[in-house]
Design a binder for these strands. Structure first.
Lengths: 239, 239
DNA sequence: GGCCGACGCTCTGTCGACAAATAAAATTTA
DNA sequence: TAAATTTTATTTGTCGACAGAGCGTCGGCC
């Protein structure tokens, strides 16, 4: 048996009628974001239907949802592939990500209620724990949950939806480019998160905004450095 | 025969293999936005499959796409209904709409190329023509296309996607609340559009931003006035 | 020997049917 | 008569099967 089979495949779980589609959707979504499914690789419906022990119909509906999220690309009458990460639009991605960091932080400072805080702190604690463990992939996921919680406290579902999509895309990019662990960065993120929380609790919109900008810049800079480190084989020409 | 049958139902069109789903999707999407399908009303898959002369499978896949757009709501094992317009979140809607007006206008001023202009001007001309005809519903649709064209010139697909969704939601709200035709407003919009174009062509980011804010405020104010006019039966208590 | 077209294979798009889940109707019971 | 419960009916979720559209392969032709 393959070694991977030791860890129980969640696809094996039996689900009730009406949950089949979301079950497949959630699992595939995770595997795409975690790059277990390589960008550009084809997706075989028949294979999936065997793996999930379902007919192709619910599989296809899950794929339609993933396509709506932009995680997969459907080539009509041909095949569907895991969406590629588009380097040309990296600028647009960073721009949108930064803006969403800002507006969600601002709204959270304005609109949060006391009940929102525990969940946010819990995600931050999880994040800090992963930092101690030097578990980068756990950090990335916890970071996503932390910021989503803040966005939800801001109570603008349009922003939250876009932010989720961007953060997930960020997870894919980070997985793709992550190479070396730098002790300093994660600890700095922990501190920045703490600052963001306190500004939010104090309902200080402008400070929340400023911190969000700094945080976003930091993350963008990190991703950029990963990318350029990866491009070292084809260095930019310096004039 | 019903009078509606005089206008050829686009559902009757025969489509090639692989286009069935998008065909259904487009038509239903339009009917939801144009409120031909009333918010809250149930959607019968069997009925649709008869109407489109297709099996339920492609119909269901189209419905999944609409659900991803937030245009319909699926109640598991029960039924799916046309999404209601959520008045409690009207503030969030206006906020996001204004922000997208702004960022797309800014980006268009920065990133547009000469080839983008003709399409934008064409949409503006269409809009102006509808104003002359006093065709409000046409105006609303043309206005949407105009701003989408600007967003596309800004070349940030994340913003464009959210903006489209917001503008479509706006079309639904306007259809719902539109009552009386005011001669002045539409002409003002035409002027504002012209200003937006010239600021964009001049690559004046800040002026584009300012105009976008003013334009958005104007539209938000208009929708708000429609809504409050509609609520006249239950007036707010003035203290 | 290389290019072009017919053939077959694989995979997707669509179909009709069945079964579970829920809502509505009918019936019983207090 | 009203409430509770069983029965019926409708509608969704899932299934297995078929047919069309590409893609690769093989053979023929220049």
């Amino acid at each position: 048996m393959a070694k991977a089979a030791q860890k129980q495949d969640p696809a094996a779980t039996v689900v009730k009628r009406g949950e089949g589609v979301s079950h497949v959707y959630e699992i595939l979504r995770n595997e795409i974001i975690e790059l277990k499914l390589v960008p550009g690789s084809p997706i075989d419906e028949t294979l999936l239907s065997e793996r999930f022990a379902m007919s192709r119909t619910p599989i296809r509906e899950a794929l339609v949802r993933l396509a709506a999220d932009g995680l997969i690309t459907t080539l009509t009458n041909r095949t569907t592939i895991v969406s590629n990460i588009d380097f040309l639009q990296m600028g647009a991605f960073f721009d949108a990500l930064t803006l969403m960091y800002r507006v969600t932080a601002r709204l959270a400072a304005s609109n949060h209620v006391a009940e929102d805080i525990p969940a946010i702190r819990a995600h931050q604690a999880t994040f800090a724990a992963f930092v101690e463990e030097r578990n980068v992939l756990g950090m990335i996921a916890a970071n996503r949950d932390f910021h989503v919680a803040i966005a939800e406290a801001g109570r603008n579902p349009y922003y939250t939806a876009l932010f989720k999509r961007l953060l997930d895309e960020g997870r894919r990019i980070l997985r793709l480019y992550y190479h070396s662990y730098d002790d300093n960065l994660p600890r700095q993120y922990v501190t920045e998160h703490e600052d963001i929380i306190s500004a939010m609790v104090a309902r200080d919109v402008e400070r929340s905004d400023a911190l969000a900008i700094a945080h976003a810049d930091q993350i963008v800079r990190q991703i950029r450095s990963y990318i350029s480190a990866d491009n070292r084989s084809s260095p930019r020409i310096q004039l």
